[in-house]
Nucleic acid binder design. Structure first.
Lengths: 377, 377
DNA sequence: TACCTCTGCTAAACCGGTTTAGTGTACCGG
DNA sequence: CCGGTACACTAAACCGGTTTAGCAGAGGTA
């Protein structure tokens, strides 16, 4: 009646449990006729080895977790994620390893990681000094971190944020843009955005360099940078546009730190009647497939998302297999500007001295960043 | 040295394993001081209950599988999938259930399902008569099937394919289109496309109705339908366009049975210098977010993808919890045509009698459907 | 004959928890 | 003083496999 267990098969076949186990896993230890008899009886009984029990005995789950900073709903709103998953899948599918999405549980990443049924973790979008991550590290699971500068002695895969951002900024500068907004994205639910650390800081630094500004300088009398922050989704991009437009003084160009944000921003701008790129230039970051679909086609900083996924999976599997905790290094993948059609010279070069306000408030929150999740203290 | 086990904590605290287990799972069975002492010692020792062992004992994995017909790489090339996952996540995140993608293992779905560490399955894009699915059913796991007419006595969530397709066809007919191509998509790697069963058949039937054609009729002297087939990806869409264009006689409208295919097709058509929608009307199916981003914005049949995911997850969790195998019914969600900018009257109404070939070959394969995977015999 | 090796199989330990069925004690009411 | 009950905790069974160590018998060798 109930699902047959290995002992049932063994009894029916007149052999030991070991023999049945061998029949499935190590046929060479068994006489061929015995093996076939066992398999036949197993088939008759409809026996399938229990995946859970097998995993407990083998002490591995054949699963890896992709730890994300937001709910599945929110994180998959960004086409970046499926691209990353495709890359991870390229490696894992062949290895018979399943990929599990690990979103925060009631706001806590540590909690979700503790219960996760995995042999290792890929960490995405988490600032490396996040308090909960210390717990994650203590868990002892092999880890690969993405887009951070360092994470314990785990392997790190990142991209050259500052170089890419710098290229994009230089591109805009060369087109003549002097009044530019930067739309940062929040990496994690409970730390809306940190301008001074992590990915945002690296990209901002690149942007400033590209415009010839000093570090931490938002204006030099000629060029003015306005920095806002929003959630990483189409809606976030729309909200960012509304916020910039609300001032009544739109910049001539907007640099979104995520393509999906740029897409939302472009949609809102178009809805508002602006003609892009003439009345507003927009750049993105990531180069997701949709960057080539939208109108105008998006000028953006390309990063090798799938390759990132592939590398992360490869490094993680190595770490899982070797157990040797030889210090794994940081791997920085190149970025490059892809110029498409969303950037153009500003319609009228504003005289630099026209601006009176030299130091606008640096950070504005355009929209709530998460979908209501609070992190644990 | 090694990771502490429950027995270590128990010994150190001078209590039984049961007490330690209670401390974590059923605090009400324990005196508060005892509980705190146990938790303190657990913390000191760095003890975390083993997720695998816990699952074996509890006889549930707290994971559900999303069974897909292609590799992770291929399946996530279609933005439909992330949308579906978002819907599934809406339900599962809150229930503490993880979602695992279950792609075929060496071409075999049965093999991957057998080893999957899940309490239940959501089946996507699988023809219900697929030989391997019989094995899946025999596995005894609770199942919810998507987009099929029936699947044993499992719950089925589908959408009104024929009504949506009919609306789209009628829309094109009313615009004056009489020469139309239909681009079917292959649901599964090893069954490129079956015009006479499943989703493709339902949609084709709706299309024929919309154009006033009899079932199985591809031409009535006035209206001509050309049916081709391709893989469900941007590249598949491009390939479909190449194929249609190769004949030197493009239809005036193309109905793609997937938005991502329509997007690829539009990209290829635009690259070829066509002005859309005047020179070619295109309709899609699904209404993924990108349908609203591309140029021209895509006229498409909307289906509630996220809602589908939500319902599937809800039904599956019910089935898992209740164990009662009361026959679960089929739930058909509505579809509706969303008219955007990718459809317009044909540039010149071709006189119906201009066409000489009345019965073109019905099926053409535009591109290999999978990425090289073969199904098991 | 004694010893060794190889094949084919098994007993029992092990993976690390949860859960059932109690046990002993204290307290309560009658 | 006795029976009943609640409380706090435990022993042992259980989940269902894998794996180690070893045994029996056949065959080969000196």
């Amino acid at each position: 009646m109930a699902r047959p267990r290995i002992a049932d098969v063994a009894e029916r076949a007149g052999v030991s449990k070991t023999a049945v186990s061998f029949a499935f896993n190590q046929p060479e230890h068994l006489n061929e006729t015995t093996r076939e008899r066992i398999l036949l009886i197993a088939e008759e009984l409809g026996y399938r080895p229990s995946p859970i029990a097998r995993r407990l005995a083998r002490q591995r789950t054949d699963q890896i977790g992709l730890v994300v900073p937001q709910s599945t709903h929110d994180i998959f709103a960004n086409p970046f994620l499926p691209e990353l998953v495709r890359g991870i899948g390229d490696v894992c599918d062949g290895e018979g390893i399943a990929v599990v999405i690990v979103p925060p549980v009631r706001g806590s990443i540590a909690r979700s990681v503790e219960g996760a049924l995995v042999d290792g973790l890929i960490l995405l979008g988490l600032p490396s000094d996040h308090p909960e991550l210390i717990k994650v590290q203590r868990g002892g699971l092999p880890v690969v971190a993405l887009d951070v500068e360092a994470f314990g002695n785990a392997a790190v895969i990142a991209v050259d944020d500052s170089a890419g951002a710098e290229q994009a900024a230089r591109h805009l500068a060369e087109l003549g843009h002097r009044d530019v907004a930067v739309v940062l994205i929040a990496a994690h639910v409970d730390s809306p955005v940190d301008e001074h650390a992590g990915m945002s800081a690296r990209r901002l630094a690149g942007i400033r360099t590209g415009f010839g500004l000093a570090p931490d300088q938002d204006s030099d009398g000629t060029t003015t940078l306005r920095v806002v922050s929003t959630s990483v989704s189409e809606e976030g991009g729309r909200a960012a546009f509304e916020m910039l437009a609300a001032d009544g003084r739109l910049p001539t160009a907007v640099m979104a730190m995520s393509d999906i944000t740029a897409i939302g921003l472009i949609a809102a701008a178009t809805d508002a009647g602006l003609r892009l790129p003439d009345e507003l230039s927009v750049t993105g970051f990531d180069d997701i497939p949709a960057a080539g679909w939208i109108q105008p086609r998006l000028t953006t900083v390309h990063q090798p998302i799938r390759e990132k996924g592939r590398l992360a999976a490869t490094r993680l599997i190595e770490a899982i297999r070797e157990k040797g905790d030889r210090r794994a290094g940081t791997q920085i993948l190149p970025t490059r500007l892809v110029v498409r059609a969303s950037t153009a010279p500003p319609r009228s070069h504003p005289a630099p001295e026209r601006r009176t306000q030299t130091n606008p408030p640096p950070i504005r929150i355009a929209a709530p960043v998460g979908a209501g999740g609070d992190a644990a203290p």
